[in-house]
Design a protein around this nucleic acid. Structure first.
Lengths: 197, 197
DNA sequence: CGCCTGCATTGAACTGTGTTCACTGAGGAA
DNA sequence: TTCCTCAGTGAACACAGTTCAATGCAGGCG
């Protein structure tokens, strides 16, 4: 039945999600998920063409959750600078609270790139626009092209800091994620740093 | 014999290196390397405790090559700002010329973190100091602590840009790696951007 | 009601890969 | 010559993702 199909799919995604959150992407096994949701591996492969697609569905949920948080951070601030700080802090906190889910967004290479659903790109673009809108607010005199570059540089920078932090290539030397991020962000915002929540 | 042992090890590392360079880390197989260097898998496992250690040896070579390049970039510049641009450009070009080798430096999670040889950390610290020295040169009035933060923010930023670029999460929208990197770096150097080699 | 058909479900089997380990044989010592 | 040692071997094991022939169930038909 179609209903059972849809329910099983949701169940599989939830199971995969918590498994990844707990054990990382390498802890996700087809047999485990199948057993957990009470079906055979064969059925799981009817629900998802392959494991990539299951991971993908989890990634969509992760991106979606992140989008909600970032939108909230963006709209609940009064100034552009404040919003930008709030957005980046929210992002950083998300990576700290959900390291494995966040890592899975990037760690996993799709076997066949053409498989990548369009939703994914769209959602990523949406996220990016939240940031870009605030950069525009801060620098009303910059061209669209420069805004785009500025936003991408900031985004990539924050991304790099979070990535190095989570893969333990950053803070084993005593400088914290938040301090480094604040240093980066202040370059883009122009104001001096403040304490992080 | 000890000699043969050492030779085989070198051969294995070279083979793994070119294999990774060509096919990525997922293209590296124990059986392939063993066959290529003319020994059995068993012997390969006498040379390296496990595949991680082989990958590791390749990573050391990669870091070492990178160090040579960055040192050269650093010393062949006259001003600190010029050196910083040269260093980051060299780094970026390295990631473009050796995407798979560079990715392997970060992509691969050691199964057992305690296995990580000390050399590795040391080499990474060395690389970092090359950058830090130039940041110090540019901002002679900053405290050591601020220099450290500044350097780490810049390094993480460049890293993030390269990573997003290589994993195709950046330039599918028309903004190039070099433009974005230049935008980032100019925030740290203070001068305006110039053409990239 | 019994039979048939289509299709979701199953799980054994296949494939590929890292890793192990009992065996082998070459080379040196006695 | 005989024995010992140990590096080298590759068959075998463990464990994953993935497939597919067989199964059985639900619903329609006579």
């Amino acid at each position: 039945m179609q209903q059972r199909h849809a329910n099983l799919r949701k169940l599989a995604i939830s199971t995969a999600e918590s498994r990844i959150a707990e054990c990382g992407i390498q802890g996700l096994k087809a047999r485990f998920v199948a057993k957990e949701i009470g079906c055979s591996v064969g059925t799981l492969y009817n629900l998802f063409k392959n494991i990539d697609f299951l991971i993908f569905a989890v990634n969509l949920k992760t991106l979606s959750a992140l989008e909600t948080l970032l939108k909230h951070a963006s709209t609940s601030s009064t100034t552009g600078a404040q919003a930008l700080r709030s957005i980046t802090n929210t992002y950083i906190n998300f990576t700290l609270s959900n390291p494995n889910l966040w890592l899975t967004l990037f760690e996993h290479q799709f076997t066949n790139p053409d498989d990548t659903p369009q939703d994914y790109y769209q959602l990523r673009i949406n996220l990016f626009h939240i940031l870009e809108a605030q950069v525009t607010d801060i620098h009303p005199n910059l061209s669209a092209h420069d805004i785009a570059l500025e936003s991408r540089a900031l985004w990539a920078g924050v991304h790099g800091i979070c990535m190095l932090n989570i893969t333990n290539k950053l803070d084993d030397d005593g400088y914290t994620l938040n301090d480094i991020a604040t240093t980066l962000i202040s370059k883009f915002v122009g104001e001096r740093k403040e304490a992080t929540p």
